[in-house]
Design a protein around this nucleic acid. Structure first.
Lengths: 321, 321
DNA sequence: CCCCTGATTTGACTTTTGTCGAGAGCCGTG
DNA sequence: CACGGCTCTCGACAAAAGTCAAATCAGGGG
């Protein structure tokens, strides 16, 4: 898009202020506008991603625990949000960290796969704006009609908006009523292309869902609590991009999964950087499953969860030394 | 290096302030220190690169003139600093822009070649701090003993310091008194390795020098004004990394060049991104030579210089349509 | 053990920045 | 051409951030 005159002014103000280090009143003089306007422009500049303020997430990887988790689970990088009363809301802390990490991982020209869930939406919501060029954000799974505020397409679009990127939505329901219909839809060129394009992503962002009555899948009406319980008995350990996985991180062989339109796990694994973010402590088992299935290379979790992971790894190495 | 406790505090303060958006007094409460300390920590955080504030340089590439220069000279990207009374000192403007562009081009893990000169040093001087990991800054040419404040090794080290990167200096004089000695020195393992490593760089930063009595080479005593005039008559058009080039951008065949220890132009051309920055209008001819020799892919110049380049290109296309 | 040095921290003060409601300009419409 | 409705801009005030000299602290040497 061509730069509009207003945007030009914002850019100039931001330039003088942030790059040259002038004060707001000096900028106002230069540009012959009031200081109040300058202040407003600067806010817009920050909101548009014309200026970018990022803080290194070093500290959270440098943590000894983070290193241990990396080693124990063979992950590329792990960030641990300290849970000790840092800030009012501890779960926000993880999301803020995840957003920073995400922005640090994104590069110009990247193609990014985004799944859906409360966690992902929270991240999108608090993520600061950036002006990445040529970035495409693709939706990893089908949609849900539910009146949820964090539908898959909304997660995708919101993140795309924040990055000033192109959003590629998935115009199909997440789950259909029959296997045949799902198969047919997956074969549709427009859907097939989207699914095929997923393995071309450079970066994926998702969380993992729990297999219980609180799951989004239940809340959105994709599954009943009873069905969920049944799946659990069949070995369901978690939910990734709308699909139910077993403890080994493989797609569970069940009727539900066959009716789902979503990224194949194989495609997900083909993505170089798979950033998984887990907020709730209750998602321990699902997280283990996701890690077992090689569905995450980069991980953002809270300190408590990290402790549990290490405990588990320690116990496992004792039983089978 | 292990994170010292002090650094930890700085990091926490920066995190709460910039990532969580708390106010300084809120941060002070959280961390149980005074607000004044928080303010100080935050300044340190900015100076260390723990937080990173960058402004997009879009505006300067989006310029119509920039596009035209790109097309006319087949360059990858051109940034033009508007010379019209933007800010007090117009030449600073170019350096500020160059520093931003430079930081935008650097990626983690990069190896960066840096030449020397007033322009390069000015850029280093106003460049904001960053915390790039695994970046190496290598010196492109030998040193000068002169009491200059912008010796090659200083340019290299200052940039390395700003980026929190490793600096690789070149422990050899730029110019020796005999050709034999230069040849011998170039064959020394330690020097040879350094020279060989130059083509592995991902990014180079340099300016181009003029062939006149004001040249650094003269000021540093590497050449006398008379020798400079003589070289000019022999076809010298500019100076790159301490070497004299002709109008076609090739090393001039002369005694001086044979006595110089510096990056071969071939190695420089092997570098993917070659960022050239020119501040002075008087360097028109040298710049043309550098462009002709394919020594620059990315260019930062002032509006006036851009005008002259386009004029030249227009005239050239008229004489040879 | 005490004093001195240098670095860190703090409270008090100043400067800079953010915000809000009022007013000015702009456009399409009746 | 006058009238809303709209956005953009400004002045004034309140809030936040920056600064500095004095106080405190840690540690080393005499």
């Amino acid at each position: 898009m061509a730069i509009r005159p207003a945007e030009q002014l914002i850019h100039k103000a931001a330039w003088l202020y942030y790059a040259h280090g002038l004060r707001q009143d000096e900028v106002a003089n230069q540009l012959k506008i009031s200081r109040a306007s300058v202040a407003m422009y600067l806010r817009k500049a920050r909101e548009t991603g014309i200026v970018n303020i990022s803080t290194s997430t070093q500290l959270f990887t440098d943590d000894v625990m983070a290193r241990k988790v990396e080693d124990a689970f063979k992950l590329d990088a792990v960030w641990i949000a300290p849970e000790n009363a840092y800030v009012a809301d501890p779960s926000t802390d993880i999301a803020v960290l995840a957003a920073s990490v995400f922005l640090e991982l994104v590069k110009k020209g990247d193609r990014i796969g985004v799944a859906w869930g409360r966690t992902v939406y929270t991240i999108a919501d608090i993520m600061s704006y950036a002006d990445l060029q040529d970035v495409t954000v693709v939706q990893l799974c089908g949609n849900l009609g539910a009146p949820y505020s964090y539908r898959p397409d909304q997660c995708t679009m919101e993140i795309a908006r924040r990055l000033n990127a192109k959003g590629l939505n998935f115009y199909a329901p997440l789950v259909l009523s029959t296997e045949e219909l799902a198969r047919g839809l997956r074969a549709e060129p427009v859907i097939r292309d989207q699914l095929a394009g997923i393995s071309d992503c450079d970066l994926a962002l998702y969380s993992v869902g729990a297999v219980d009555a609180d799951s989004h899948l239940v809340k959105c009406g994709a599954l009943t609590p009873a069905e969920m319980t049944a799946l659990r008995k069949q070995g369901a350990a978690g939910v990734i991009a709308g699909q139910v996985i077993d403890a080994g991180g493989e797609v569970l062989d069940c009727d539900y999964n066959r009716r789902v339109i979503s990224a194949e796990l194989g495609s997900l694994r083909a993505i170089e950087k798979r950033l998984m973010v887990v907020q709730e402590d209750s998602k321990f088992e699902p997280l283990l499953a996701a890690i077992a299935g090689g569905l995450c290379t980069h991980l953002v979790i809270g300190a408590h969860m990290a402790g549990r992971l290490l405990e588990h790894a320690g116990a496992a190495s004792k039983t089978a030394p």
